Computed example of a mutant assay.
Amino acid sequence: MFIKDYISKDFPCFSLTDSIESARDTLEDFGYSHIFIKKSHHFYGAIAKEFLDEAEGTLKNLEHQIERFAILEDNNIMDSIRLFYTFNSNIIPVINKSEKYLGYIGCEDVFQDLSRYPLFSETGAMLTVETPVKKYSMTEIANIVESNNSKFYGAFISFMSDEVIHVTIKISNENLGSIDETFDRYDYRIVEKYYSDEKTDLFKDRFGFFQKFIEI
């Protein structure tokens, strides 16, 4: 799941001397949210599409709108998710340690890769349980699920404060009533749950988890 395994190279990196019109035309062709800028053979930053729509001249005129974000080629694909969310972008530039532009990764590529994993692909139940920070144990949460003969597909922390942690889990549909009772017996509070075994809900299920990851 390293970034270098997902790099696409078909999207150009512009120079400040290039025209805004050519950059705008490229964005229309690709449907991306940002263009990328290089300066002195190094990656310089990105400019959002909204700033290109009304401007004319060269990209130098928009230098004050440049945002600095990129991801290193040897990072993990999960490291890109916060960047997509923070910069409201559907494309992230990839650079090496010398800050040379290598290409990009797209949001759709990340989503497609993550959707292969049971956390997203398996139909099942979604639960969010609350536990005090001092009591938190992912091992115990998984054991509660598996001790009730249900499958534990994965989990992530969806909220954390100084006092409590919310853990969102994906499990199979077996023995859900018993799992609820066991969590209650071990002093976990179920704050959210969604049970479904309908195949038509699969895509919505995946997308919901992906959105929660982005918002962390």
Rank of each mutant, 00 (worst) to 15 (best):
Thr86Lys: 15
Arg116Ser: 11
Arg116Leu: 12
Asn75Met: 06
Val133Asp: 09
Tyr136Arg: 02
Asn173Cys: 05
Ala155Thr: 11
Gly106Asn: 10
Lys199Gln: 12
Glu140Cys: 07
Asn88Leu: 14
Pro93Arg: 00
Arg68Ala: 15
Ser178Lys: 09
Asp53Val: 12
Tyr32Pro: 11
Glu198Lys: 11
Asn173Asp: 08
Ile37Arg: 04
Glu56Ser: 13
Tyr153Phe: 04
Asp197His: 15
Arg82Met: 15
His41Trp: 12
Asn143Pro: 13
Phe152Tyr: 02
Leu102Asn: 14
Phe152His: 00
Asp184His: 02
Arg206Glu: 10
Tyr32Ser: 05
Met78Glu: 11
Glu108Arg: 12
Ser8Glu: 12
Lys170Pro: 01
Ser8Gln: 07
Leu72Ile: 06
Pro132Met: 13
Thr139Ile: 12
Thr86Glu: 10
Asp197Glu: 13
Phe43Leu: 03
Lys212Cys: 15
Val133Tyr: 03
Glu63Ser: 07
Phe14Asn: 05
Glu73Cys: 10
Gln211Ala: 06
Ile105Asn: 06
Ile91Asn: 05
Lys39Arg: 13
Phe69Lys: 03
Leu127Asp: 00
Ile169His: 01
Thr26Pro: 14
Val129Lys: 01
Leu52Arg: 03
Asp205Ile: 10
Val129Ile: 01
Ile169Tyr: 02
Val191Glu: 08
Cys107Ala: 08
Thr123Ile: 10
Asp25Trp: 11
Ile105Gly: 04
Ser33Gln: 07
Leu72Val: 05
Tyr188Leu: 00
Ser8Tyr: 05
Asn148Glu: 02
Phe156Leu: 06
Asn175Gln: 09
